[in-house]
């Protein structure tokens, strides 16, 4: 699974940082940063799904397949 946030949609609510703190954070200016977007553990995958369902603007997209690593 790969996590992508549509920054045009994101309103920087911070909802996701409470649900999946190892994946998302807000920087000093209050903008969302994705700390980790791939190679998620099982717990992180579950948290990512929860965050996606709770994001007020549905900005979090979960791509089912990780893009193949570029060798």
């Amino acid at each position: 699974m790969k996590v992508h946030v549509d920054m045009d949609k994101c309103i920087c609510s911070g909802m996701c940082i409470t649900i999946a703190p190892s994946l998302f954070d807000l920087d000093k200016a209050g903008r969302l940063v994705v700390i980790k977007s791939c190679k998620l553990s099982d717990t992180e995958q579950k948290e990512a799904q929860d965050a996606a369902m709770c994001c007020p603007v549905e900005a979090i997209e979960l791509l089912q397949h990780e893009e193949p690593a570029i060798a």
Binding site: C12, S13, G14, M15, I17, T18, L26, G30
Partner: peptide, 12 residues
């Protein structure tokens, strides 16, 4: 107001 991160910390 305009303090999303602190609010989320408070919410927790």
């Amino acid at each position: 107001m305009n303090e999303a991160k602190s609010l989320m910390l408070s919410k927790t």
